[in-house]
Nucleic acid binder design. Structure first.
Lengths: 227, 227
DNA sequence: TATGTACCGTACTGTACGGTACACTTACGA
DNA sequence: TCGTAAGTGTACCGTACAGTACGGTACATA
């Protein structure tokens, strides 16, 4: 799918020269982290070598090790870093006006854009592939990725009073219907590889279907259990 | 898509002793494949070493290399092997009688059981983690795993005439709703790690919800586009 | 001018692992 | 009983890689 939702500005070094060493050090550390992020996302944990990182960053391995200790800790820092960027991308989300369906379409597009971004796919692949070796990183990712997104949808439904009278559990279930329909197929597809380049209309179509169907069949005053 | 390098005869050893060398060779090959499968699923591709495989199988590395050539080809054979087993598990599926909702509950349980089985999760993790290095294995997995399951649900809906009058596209969309709701959250959760051991009632609850809601809101004669 | 900090460059160590070589053994069939 | 094919056991090779050692540089502060 597309990409670049997540390029890496994040605290530009600023005019470094004026300030003393500490500042320089921070900038150096940040640069290492950024390059490590790109490297890990491009190559995966196992294939990303510390020498390759040196080649990207310039400088020497000693510096990298003085900052991060070892490769595993560097990996942890990278995962944190990417998750923070993803989170930042969601936090300035400003839902549009309009009726519920329009809002859901917008939310759906936003969710797809983030979840299917190249960077997120690469991160998810890496984390999943290493979940056996780094179980706690799997937990962190899940909590700050999928679980967070799920809660976000629930909050959205609550904030829009999309299902008046429904219990919290029903709303949670409805949110799972919504995200499942929105994301599941394309996400798994993306995790498995680039695949045949899909219809660029697809995300829009799915967001529309998810929103319309949701409004028709889930939203509104609670229906009785009977058909 | 069925890949060249990855064919496996896959036949049970039979009564080996009676027959000459050829049979013994096949049995040997199968044993290696089975142990390799367990090893890869337990350790992941990168961490599974050929020496560890020798330690499990007994015998020598030479034999393994004479059968499989190298580690990558062995990996391919293992993926095929596991997929064949998963496929076999689906093929003798015999949907129960009863009304549509009961059938959907049963299908839902079956799907969850297979998709969330330890072996499948381990396979998916491995494939996803190595999708970067072995893109075609990612394709094979996707085609014989998720995509196959999706088509299975569509076929099921067609066979049960669950959505009379609906277009094929509508049925496909409905199938995505169904599998998304059924699988998405738990599958992602499982891929990320064992997590807090979930409510053992959960799969049943979700299958019930998926089936009931599906019947109420998707199945039956096509509804007009209007609310 | 002296000192401490951040960083550089490079050579090196230790080790793990995929893969190979090769001599030896076993079991069958003619 | 001999030839042959399958399999064994072990030692070994080449290489890739994480991590370390260490001498040197640039620069800011005191």
């Amino acid at each position: 799918m597309n990409n670049s939702a997540l390029q890496i500005p994040l605290e530009s070094p600023g005019d470094v020269a004026a300030e003393p060493l500490m500042r320089v050090a921070r900038a150096r550390r940040l640069l290492i982290l950024q390059e490590a992020t790109r490297l890990f996302l491009d190559e995966g944990y196992g294939s990303a070598t510390t020498n390759a990182l040196v080649a990207r960053v310039g400088g020497s391995k000693s510096t990298i090790y003085s900052y991060f200790g070892n490769k595993e800790k560097l990996f942890g820092a990278v995962v944190d870093h990417v998750l923070a960027q993803l989170k930042a991308a969601t936090e300035d989300y400003d839902p549009p006006g309009g009726d519920l369906e329009d809002c859901l379409v917008d939310l759906g597009m936003k969710l797809q854009t983030i979840v299917l971004s190249d960077d997120h796919i690469a991160l998810a692949r890496m984390v999943i592939g290493e979940a056996h070796r780094f179980p706690e990183i799997g937990e962190i990712y899940h909590e700050h990725g999928p679980a967070l997104a799920q809660r976000g949808v629930v909050d959205f439904l609550l904030a829009h009073d999309a299902m008046p009278g429904a219990s919290l559990e029903d709303i949670r279930d409805a949110a799972e219907w919504f995200t499942g329909r929105l994301i599941h197929r394309a996400f798994i597809r993306a995790l498995c590889g680039p695949g045949t380049d899909a219809d660029p209309q697809e995300p829009g179509r799915i967001a529309q279907d998810a929103a319309r169907t949701f409004v028709q069949r889930f939203a509104g005053p609670a229906r009785g259990a009977a058909t």
